[in-house]
Design a protein around this nucleic acid. Structure first.
Length: 596
RNA sequence: GUGCCCGUAGCUCAAUCGGAUAGAGCACCAGCCUUCUAAGCUGGGGGUUACAGGUUCGAUUCCUGUCGGGCAUGCCA
C-alpha cells in the first residue's frame, strides 16, 4: 500500500489533465472538500482560477480538463457543475481502503509537515508567586495539546517553561511570607494590600518557621523602619495611594534584605522552590509536562543580560535619556522606544527577555513558539524589534495569543486577583470536574476567543460536558468488540466491500480526512480543530450505532462493520490523546452516580 | 486619543487558500429502549453573518469607514 494519500493521487490526475489543456501552466492544483454530498468527494475550482489568465470561459475550460483527465480505478465519475466546478466521485473501493490504512498504521494521521525539524514551544510560564488559576489552565491545555499536535505533524518539539524567578514579584512574595511568619510570633504589622494574601502564603510561613525556627524574627519597629505606611482602604482609582503603597512595599523589602542578610536569600529560595514544586505537580496531574524549566535568574548569573545589552549598545541601538538606557525599538517597527536599564541601574524585565529570546534562537530551533496571554500582545513588536536589531530573523518567532477566561458563578462574572487570593485554582477545577473534562473544555473554542467558564455547570458534573459524549462513542465500540470477542487482527484484513450505507461512507470520509486535519491544526496552531473533529466523528458514530446492528449473522458484513468501528475507535482515541483526554473502554452511569 | 483582537441562530461557538443551499451543541417542539450501554438517536422551527460601501465569476472570509465589546498603551513582571 502506497503512503500517498487518496487526495494526492487524484491531484496527480488533475495535474496531468492541466498539462494537457494548458502546457507549461504553473497553476497550483488543489482539491476542495465539498460541503454537500451531491457535489462529490472532491471538487476542483481549477477552471475558475485559470479562466482569467487563459482568456477562456470557465465552463469550456472545465469541459476540456474533464476530458483530459486520465481514467483511474479510484474514480467513479466526474461532473461539470455550476460556473465551472469539477466534481469528482470516488469508487466505493477507493473509499473503503481507508479502513485498512487506519487498522494497519497505528500512527494514522501522522504527517510530515515538520520534516523532523526542531521547534520549541514555551507556555504557561506563570510567575511562581502562587497557585495556577483557571486562566493559566487554559494556556497549559492549549500549549500541551499544541505540542502533541506538532509532534504528530512531524516536528521534534521541546516544551519549555520560563521561570520568572528574578523580579520584584518574587521579592513581594518573600516579603509577604515573612510578614505572615512574623504574625506567628505576634507581630502587629498591618498586611499591605499589594502583598500576596492567599492562604498558601501563611502555609509557607509555617514551613519557614519549621525550617528556620525563630531566627528570622525581628521587631515590628525594625521591619517597618522608614516605611511610609500602607493605605489599607484606598480606592482602586486612587493613584496617589497606589504609589505610596508601592513605596511602602519597596521599603519593607529593603528592610527585610538588610535585617536578614543571607537568611533573606534562603527565605527567597524556599518560597521559590515551594511554588515551583507545587506548580510542577499541579501541571503533571493535568497531563502537562515540560522538558525544560528555564530560569530567568540564570541569565543574570551568567552575564547574558549584561552581554546582550552591551551587544545592542555596540550596534548603536541604545541611548541614554533621563538617566535610563533606552533601546531604539521604534526603528524596528515598535511604536515607541523602551527602557532596558533603569535609572537605578537595574535591568528591566524586557532586557532579560531579550537575552532569553536570543538564547532561544541560538539553540538552533527552526521555529520558536511563545504562547502568551492576549494581554501581552503589545509586547510582541518590541521583542521582535530586539531580535531584528541583534541580527536574527524575527519571523522565526511565532506568538499565538490565548484570551482570558472569564469565570461565571451563580450567573455572575467572578473577579479574579492573584494578589487578593480571590480566584479559583486549576487544582480546584481539576478536583471538581476531572482532568478530562477540563482539558477538553479548554480547547473547545478558538484560543483567541474569550472563554466563558461557567463554574456552576463545570462543577456540577453535568452531562453537558461534551467530553463524555466523545468518550462514550469510544466506550460503545469497545463494548461491541468485547461482545464479539474475536481476534482484532482479523479485522485488518476484512473484506470491506459490503460497507455501503451513507453513514458508513461518512465515517470512512472522516477517517480519510484525519491526516489533513492534523496538518491544518498544526499549521494554524489550532488544537480546537481536533476537539471539533473528534466530537463530529463521535456524533457520526452514535448515529451509525443507532441505525445499524453490528453483530449480524452475515459474517462478511459483520467483520466489515467491526473493522470500520475499530478504525473509528482508534482515531477517536488518538485525537483524545492529543488533547490530553483519556479514552476509557467502558463508561457506566451507575459509577458516575456513586462517585457524586 | 492611538494600536491589536473580536462582532455569525434566543444562548455558547464552528465554518478549509475567497467557493456552490452559513453548520453544531444548549434551549424549545414531536417521536425512538423486548435489540451490541438512551451519557444515545430521528425529525422540526429558528439567520439581512453588527451596519454602509468597495474589490470579482463568487465575500462570514480581503480592503475602507461607522457603531458596539475586550485588551494594551509602566524605568511592573
Amino acid at each position: 500500500m502506497s503512503m500517498t494519500s487518496l487526495q494526492e493521487r487524484v491531484v496527480a490526475l488533475f495535474k496531468t489533465a492541466l498539462q494537457s489543456v494548458a502546457p507549461g501552466s504553473t497553476q497550483a492544483v488543489v482539491l476542495d472538500k465539498p460541503r454537500q454530498a451531491d457535489h462529490g468527494d472532491f471538487a476542483s475550482t481549477l477552471a475558475l482560477q485559470l479562466a482569467k489568465s487563459l482568456q477562456r470561459p470557465p465552463r469550456e475550460l472545465a469541459q476540456a480538463l474533464l476530458q483530459a483527465l486520465p481514467t483511474s480505478p479510484l474514480i467513479e465519475k466526474v461532473e461539470l457543475a455550476g460556473p465551472g466546478f469539477i466534481n469528482v466521485y470516488l469508487t466505493a473501493a477507493a473509499k473503503q481502503g481507508v479502513v485498512h490504512d487506519v487498522l494497519s498504521q497505528p500512527q494514522w494521521g501522522a504527517v510530515n509537515l515538520g520534516h523532523q525539524r526542531h521547534i520549541q514551544v514555551e507556555f504557561v510560564s506563570s510567575n511562581p508567586t502562587g497557585p495556577l488559576h483557571v486562566g493559566h489552565g487554559r494556556g497549559a491545555a492549549f500549549g500541551a495539546s499544541l505540542c502533541n499536535i506538532l509532534a504528530k505533524a512531524g516536528y521534534r518539539v521541546q516544551r519549555e517553561y520560563y521561570v520568572n524567578d528574578a523580579g520584584r514579584q518574587m521579592d513581594i512574595l518573600a516579603l509577604s511570607t515573612w510578614l505572615r511568619y512574623l504574625d506567628l510570633f505576634g507581630s502587629k504589622i498591618p498586611f499591605p494590600p499589594n502583598g500576596y494574601q492567599g492562604d498558601y502564603v501563611a502555609a509557607m510561613a509555617v514551613q519557614l518557621r519549621a525550617a528556620l525556627g525563630d531566627s528570622l524574627k525581628r521587631t515590628d519597629m525594625e521591619a517597618c523602619a522608614g516605611a511610609p505606611g500602607a493605605i489599607l482602604d484606598a480606592a482602586p482609582e486612587d493613584a496617589g495611594a497606589a504609589t505610596q503603597n508601592e513605596m511602602h512595599m519597596d521599603r519593607l523589602i529593603s528592610n527585610a534584605k538588610s535585617l536578614l542578610g543571607a537568611d533573606y536569600a534562603a527565605m527567597h529560595q524556599l518560597v521559590l522552590k515551594e511554588q515551583l514544586a507545587d506548580c510542577r505537580a499541579d501541571l503533571e496531574e493535568f497531563g502537562v509536562v515540560f522538558d525544560e524549566w528555564f530560569s530567568e535568574q540564570s541569565l543574570f548569573d551568567s552575564g547574558a543580560v549584561a552581554a546582550v545589552v552591551a551587544q545592542l549598545d555596540a550596534g548603536g541601538h541604545l541611548y541614554l535619556q533621563d538617566g535610563a538606557r533606552w533601546f531604539r525599538s521604534s526603528a524596528f517597527g515598535d511604536e515607541k522606544d523602551r527602557v532596558v536599564q533603569r535609572e537605578n541601574g537595574l535591568f528591566t524585565y524586557f532586557a532579560s527577555d531579550i537575552a532569553y529570546h536570543l538564547h532561544k534562537f541560538k539553540r538552533g530551533f527552526s521555529a520558536i513558539v511563545d504562547v502568551w496571554g492576549a494581554d501581552h500582545h503589545g509586547y510582541i513588536p518590541r521583542v521582535k524589534a530586539a531580535l531584528t536589531a541583534l541580527g536574527q530573523d524575527a519571523e522565526r518567532l511565532v506568538v499565538p495569543l490565548v484570551q482570558f477566561v472569564s469565570l461565571y458563578r451563580h450567573g455572575e462574572k467572578a473577579q479574579m486577583s492573584t494578589r487578593k487570593g480571590q480566584f479559583v485554582t486549576l487544582r480546584e477545577l481539576r478536583t471538581e470536574v476531572g482532568r478530562d473534562a477540563a482539558r477538553f473544555f479548554y480547547v473547545l473554542r478558538k484560543s483567541d476567543q474569550h472563554l466563558d467558564f461557567d463554574l456552576d455547570l463545570a462543577l456540577s458534573e453535568s452531562n453537558d460536558n461534551p467530553v463524555f459524549y466523545v468518550q462514550y462513542a469510544h466506550a460503545r465500540i469497545c463494548s461491541v468488540l468485547g461482545k464479539w470477542g474475536g481476534d482484532r487482527a482479523v479485522l485488518a484484513h476484512a473484506d470491506l466491500s459490503s460497507l455501503a450505507t451513507p453513514t458508513e461512507f461518512a465515517l470512512m470520509q472522516m477517517l480519510r480526512e484525519y491526516p489533513e486535519l492534523i496538518e491544518s491544526a498544526a499549521r494554524e496552531y489550532a488544537p480546537h480543530m481536533v476537539a471539533f473533529y473528534v466530537r463530529e466523528l463521535a456524533a457520526t458514530l452514535h448515529s451509525y450505532y443507532n441505525a445499524e446492528q453490528f453483530l449480524v449473522a452475515d459474517e462478511a458484513l459483520k467483520l466489515a462493520r467491526l473493522a470500520l468501528i475499530a478504525a473509528v475507535a482508534s482515531v477517536i482515541k488518538d485525537g483524545l490523546t492529543l488533547l490530553g483526554v483519556g479514552a476509557p473502554n467502558a463508561m457506566h452511569r451507575e459509577s458516575i452516580d456513586e462517585s457524586v
